[in-house]
Design a protein around this nucleic acid. Sequence first.
DNA 1: CTGAAAGCGCTTACAG
DNA 2: CTGAAAGCGCTTACAG
Lengths: 345, 345
Amino acid sequence: MAQRKNSPTIHDIAKALDVTPSTVSRALNNHPRISQTTKEAVWRMASTLNYQHNHLAAALRRGRSSLLGVMVPTINRSFFSSVVRGIEEVANEAGYAVMVCQSHEMQEQEAANVQVLLRTQVDGIIVSVGKGTSDFSHFQQIIDRNTPLVLFDRVPESLPASAVVIDDYRGAYQATRHLIEQGCRRVIHLAGPAHLNIYRDRQRGFEDAHRLHGLPLETSQILPGSLQQDAGHDSITALLEAGEPFDGIFSASDYAAVGAMQALKARGIAIPEAVAIAGFSNEPFTSMIEPGLTTVEQHSRQMGQTTARIFLEQFDHQGDPYVPRRTVLTPELIVRGSSLRQNPR
Amino acid sequence: MAQRKNSPTIHDIAKALDVTPSTVSRALNNHPRISQTTKEAVWRMASTLNYQHNHLAAALRRGRSSLLGVMVPTINRSFFSSVVRGIEEVANEAGYAVMVCQSHEMQEQEAANVQVLLRTQVDGIIVSVGKGTSDFSHFQQIIDRNTPLVLFDRVPESLPASAVVIDDYRGAYQATRHLIEQGCRRVIHLAGPAHLNIYRDRQRGFEDAHRLHGLPLETSQILPGSLQQDAGHDSITALLEAGEPFDGIFSASDYAAVGAMQALKARGIAIPEAVAIAGFSNEPFTSMIEPGLTTVEQHSRQMGQTTARIFLEQFDHQGDPYVPRRTVLTPELIVRGSSLRQNPR
DNA sequence: CTGAAAGCGCTTACAG
DNA sequence: CTGAAAGCGCTTACAG
């Protein structure tokens, strides 16, 4: 079995200095009513003994852990890892350690992770929900426990919690309008699962861009799918094999857009001349491929920072009647070679 | 201030059932010497009261937190996020929650994170060191505290800790040999900081491939750098501007390789005909770009799983005299269009 | 099979 | 400016 970790405690420091643990604790926490001499003696002794503060014990006593839980569908997306980075920056600054975990898009894993985070007594939880989640009761449990919950990007509307999102509708609208301005007359939309706000909003933006430009739109132009790279590839390949005509693609994901590009290239279809294409998220690879993929920047790092700040506010006002708020960031269209035609219209 | 979280405790369950906290605790932990009837009553009451086990308190009492700390340079690399995924799989299975943090390649942040992890009383720490780290005393501190430490991929040799790596030498050797077999006679190596084992080994593999194939090698063929995308771009651009001749590139990083490819393309140099190129890591984008980038697969997920298993072993044998071990995984060369010539030699 | 009691390492009102 | 004492919520040898 695990052997006792003979780490020195506050008690050891106290004994060595012939003061009480109370004094040592106060000195370590830089309490104002402890003399400078005592503080320095304690600090020196702590360093000599290689004292390591037991955060667990302090957390138990204080009723707060200074741990912030973050759950994302996967860290293996530039979007999510950038958001995490933004959260870290603000949280660390405020004295929080961040505990990151992944749902891998599965509801079961998501619910299990919520249990882990709550049991670990995190002071708050930040979440972007997985594609596989349709029942949100595990989040309700967080709220019931009075633990601050902040959502970002993928946000279930039914939950009374604050959220930070970008204006997906607007990003999609702009991307689609851009394709139309480049001369596209029949644009395909690679859409995501409609139970997620972001994909619903992107589809609405796509639709409204057509409406407001007086362009007809058939439901067959909208292809829902997993938005993975292979799904994009397969959807477009099927379309081409069926002989369906189209001259533009707006994908709700950069990954599916790349798959689509590969399907087009495999048949020698010119991008952007024959088919112009735009994605969503500005993943780093979008500027590595050729032609560069037109996409929508989501300001992920800033989104993380904002989310963390809202958690901090909410934590400080815990107990007060809290009115959930929604923060909407503005997306930015990044135009690259995949959609930019020589002679638009 | 934060308000008391009125969560029910073991004591509440005990009172409601008219038994003692001891019994409730045992029932919840499924202790063998508690009657089935009592257990079921406790479980039912726990569920009725919506009891949430306080992991912090249990951890404090038991002297173990069931938390595993993982520190990587950045989660924003497919390699690292896959390793983390592998660690998670094994650790969760064994009842551990994983706490991920990033050093962002900076020694200071790395040392600070070690403090956070130790204070949080994690049961073990898994690390891949940052590029900016030259002083390893913060890791020594982990060992001194008797907390299991396992390293992977980027491993300081001076530390008496177990490590999991791939055979970087072999991967580099194979990639370079492949380039030579494709007819390259003067290969450039985009190298990484020599204080990191992986880059030293990759360079050795590069060198030995030349030696064993009787090909001359000048020191000017080795270009050390940050291995970021723009660094690769700039190094190769400078070489071209200087009129240096070369017909192959072996980059110690996929990112730098992409930068190099962009530099070549910008000047209309044919890949792989004029210059063949290979990278390292098999990042997903290597199969998205054109031509596909030849690279070395590192079996990252398996690396994570292995690392986690070694932690578990080490934790179980804590206190025993532990002999650090080194596990070396075999890399795999992935040949793609960036290096495959029609008529080799 | 269950209970009484001590204690994990810290913090903090209450005194002085 | 410092101390004595209680307690955060749990677990676990020791009894019976």
